[in-house]
Every structure is written in C-alpha cells, then in structure tokens.
Amino acid sequence: MNTLTSTNFNFPGQKNVYHGKVREVYTLENNTLVMIATDRLSAFDVVMPKGIPFKGQILNQIATKMMRDTEDLVPNWLTATPDPNVAVGEACEPYKVEMVIRGYLSGHAAREYKAGKRMLCGVPMPEGMKENDKFPEPIITPATKAEAGDHDEDISREDILKRNIVSEEDYLQLEDYTRKLFQRGTEIAAKRGLILVDTKYEFGKTKDGKIVLIDEIHTPDSSRYFYAEGYQQRQDNNEPQKQLSKEFVRQWLIENGFQGLEGQQVPEMSDDYIKTVSERYIELYENITGETFVKADVSNIQNRIHNNVLAYLKG
C-alpha cells in the first residue's frame, strides 16, 4: 500500500519548509501556510520506520471537521483544504506551550499518579483515584518543548508566567479557549457514544495580534477517546477501558520493549500489524465523525497533492 512518508515540494512563492514529526509545513508569500499531514506515525517522540496507510488523510479530515465545528467558539487558522491530506491557512507565531487538558486519570497522568505523584504541572490530583477515573473537574496540564530535543516537558502555569513564555493576559485567554474547546469536544464525542478523555490544543498569534487555534484538534494523535458504553462497568470491574486513540500503539511498543529510551530499538512492525493500525484509525474516523471514511486515490499521492495545491493557489 502506498503511503506518504515525506514530501519535497516547491510551491509558487515558497519561502521555507518545516518537517515536523508527522506534518510538513510550507510557508508561502502572503502569510500563507500549506500544512501536509503525512502517514508517518510518531510515538514516544520517535517516528516509526513505516507509514500507516491513510493516516494523514484521516488526521487532516478529522481536524478540518473539528475546526469547522468549533469556529463559533474559538477562531482558527484554517482557510481551505484543497486535498485530503492538506490544510491551507494563515501563518501565525506559535505559542511555545501546548495546552493539555485532562478529564480523566489516563496515560501520562495515570503513570505519574502510579509513581506516587499527586501534583501534575502544579495542579493537584485527588487521593483515592484509580486509572481512568474521571476527575471532579477537567485539569489543564501544559507542556513545553525541552531546550534540547523534541521531548515535551510538563510545566506549570506559574513557571510559564515566571519564565515569560506567555504573557499573563494571553495565557488566561489560552486557558479559557482550552476549556471551551474541551467542553465542545466532549459534547461532540458524547453524541457519537464516545468519551473525550484528554487532548491537547496549540495556539498561535496572527500578524494583527489575534489568538487562533492552530495545528490539529480532536484527532487520535492529539486526543484519547473511550467508548462510553460499558465505561462504568469496566471501571467497577478494574478492567482496561476500550479506547480509540494512539495509546494502543504505545501499549504495543511497551509490550515489545520500547518506550523511546536511549539504547532501545523500535520493534519491527509487520505489514499485518500496520494494516490493523490503519483499520483502527479508520474506525476512529468513522466513530468520531459519524461518517463513512472514503479512501483517497493513493496511486500517486505526491502528484495528487502537488496538482491539488497548485490548482488552489492559482484559483
């Protein structure tokens, strides 16, 4: 199966290109960004050797739909999606923090809790919780990029303000937007029989000083979902939750001796395993959007993207 694992386009008016872990961002003249979602899979801040069929399309289309479904609450950077893997929008200066919000004790928070910690990013976590329990109120646990490397680091609101990473006025706006988006995401998920467990949002500032939502929103790479049906029963029986997120890949890697630590080798992903990962991503797309996933033509993904973006820029 053809996958998109790298791009090297040269669009009209192109000024530079940034190759992220999963997305590639082309900056053009007139303050325009062309963001391409590849099929690369990242876990524990490491990009896996093989691409996942249709993953980029799935991420891009979920993010696009969720941007449209929340633009009445929070302005965003998006202006067009000329291709299944492509979003075009306004260039912004990104804030150097990711706004992580958690409704449940899962993932990183659960691992910290198990290690005996009751404070995460300066926010207290109640005693007596077990993994996947709901917090009394959603908690915001921001992350910032480490000085060296791409690893995300937990950071408190106090440290963000003390180190002047974000001004207090802007940070309060980011918190407000984060809570509103999470509430809307929770409502959308509930209509689909899902629980939005935790997620992260990234924001930027436009040239005219407006704070906007950027990057992706409510995708399986940035969010964790549980199936609502049977959630409480599984909690009561101390059973793992049935979830739709990238966590199943992380768990598989952990079981195969990999957590992104120094000296560890990424385990071999067979074609069969990659097919199951692709199917899980399609399952999430259909569950969260309530729509049937339509596979794009992947006979020549690079050509398709190039032609669609050129047609949009000319049009």
Rank of each mutant, 00 (worst) to 15 (best):
L78A: 08
L78W: 02
T79H: 11
A80P: 09
A80Q: 05
P82N: 08
P84L: 04
A87I: 12
A87C: 13
G89N: 04
E90Y: 05
A91R: 12
A91N: 12
E93R: 14
P94H: 03
K96N: 15
K96V: 11
K96P: 13
V97M: 03
E98W: 05
E98P: 01
V100C: 12
V100A: 07
I101K: 03
I101Y: 01
G103T: 00
A110Y: 02
A110S: 09
K114V: 12
A115K: 10
R118C: 05
L120P: 03
C121L: 08
C121G: 10
C121K: 04
M125T: 13
M125V: 15
M125Q: 10
P126V: 09
G128Q: 13
G128M: 10
M129L: 15
D133Q: 10
K134I: 11
K134S: 09
P136K: 08
E137Y: 15
E137W: 09
P138K: 06
P138Y: 00
I139N: 08
I140K: 01
T141N: 03
P142F: 01
P142N: 04
K145Q: 15
K145T: 14
E147L: 13
A148I: 15
D152G: 06
D152P: 05
E153G: 07
E153L: 14
D154H: 14
I155C: 03
R157T: 12
R157P: 08
E158L: 11
E158N: 12
D159I: 12
I160M: 02
L161Y: 02
K162V: 11
K162I: 11
K162E: 14
R163N: 15
R163M: 14
N164F: 10
N164M: 11
V166I: 12
V166T: 06
E168K: 15
E169M: 11
E169T: 14
E169A: 15
D170K: 10
D170H: 13
L174N: 01
E175P: 01
D176A: 13
D176G: 12
D176E: 15
Y177K: 02
T178Y: 00
L181I: 06
F182C: 06
F182E: 04
R184Y: 07
G185C: 06
G185W: 04
T186L: 05
A189T: 02
A189P: 00
